[in-house]
């Protein structure tokens, strides 16, 4: 979106635009881009998602595979896996969430700084999957809001990469400035 504005400005530069004096000045032509704050913020956020690998079970192996040599998640600016929730933006819940683990997942989610996103990787994290039993939480969305669900048991690394691109699209459409004013409600102390 930022580029679209810029192109329009360049195309129209021979025209008289009184309103553009502030933002578009002949003296600094080419150094200034006018765009919406949302577009800039989202563009930056989109391409530097730092995942928090919440590796719980089998899906964690595919998560590792997507970070390793063949699939190489760094092509999307996501290779910076941070095990500290404070340094990450996107929690990838990879694996079965048991009731015993649920508390931990929620606490880690709360420790992440805003803005934050959650990807439920695989059938178990999305719905409990094949583990319909007494100890497994039937979907991580019972305790944290989920942005993207990935199907598969486990999903192939390609599926995870696809999910991450979907997440990028989602981030790109957010009203980031308006969201800034919202306070993060409902955190566990």
């Amino acid at each position: 979106m930022g580029f679209a504005c810029f192109k329009r400005l360049v195309r129209n530069k021979h025209m008289h635009m009184t309103a553009s004096d502030v933002a578009y000045n002949g003296k600094v032509e080419g150094d200034v881009v006018v765009t919406r704050a949302d577009a800039v913020i989202n563009w930056i956020r989109q391409h530097s998602v730092w995942p928090m690998p919440m590796g719980l079970a089998c899906c964690a192996i595919e998560l590792m595979a997507s970070a390793a040599s063949r699939y190489d998640i760094s092509r999307f600016g996501m290779e910076v896996m941070r095990f500290s929730p404070r340094q990450s933006d996107c929690m990838i819940v990879a694996g079965t969430v048991t009731y015993k683990m649920a508390e931990v997942v929620r606490r880690i989610y709360d420790q992440m700084g805003d803005p934050k996103w959650v990807v439920a990787m695989g059938a178990c994290a999305s719905t409990g999957g094949m583990y319909r039993s007494y100890s497994v939480m039937q979907g991580v969305d019972n305790i944290v809001p989920v942005d993207v669900y990935v199907s598969g048991c486990p999903p192939r690394p390609e599926a995870l990469l696809d999910a991450m691109m979907k997440l990028q699209d989602k981030i790109g459409n957010e009203s980031s400035v308006r969201n800034l004013r919202k306070t993060s409600a409902g955190a566990v102390k």
């Binding site: 649920a102 929620r106 409990g128 497994v136 939480m137 039937q138 305790i143 944290v144």
Partner: peptide, 9 residues
């Protein structure tokens, strides 16, 4: 916060 509990699957 979450109103979650251990429910029968």
């Amino acid at each position: 916060v979450t109103q979650a509990s251990v429910e029968p699957a």
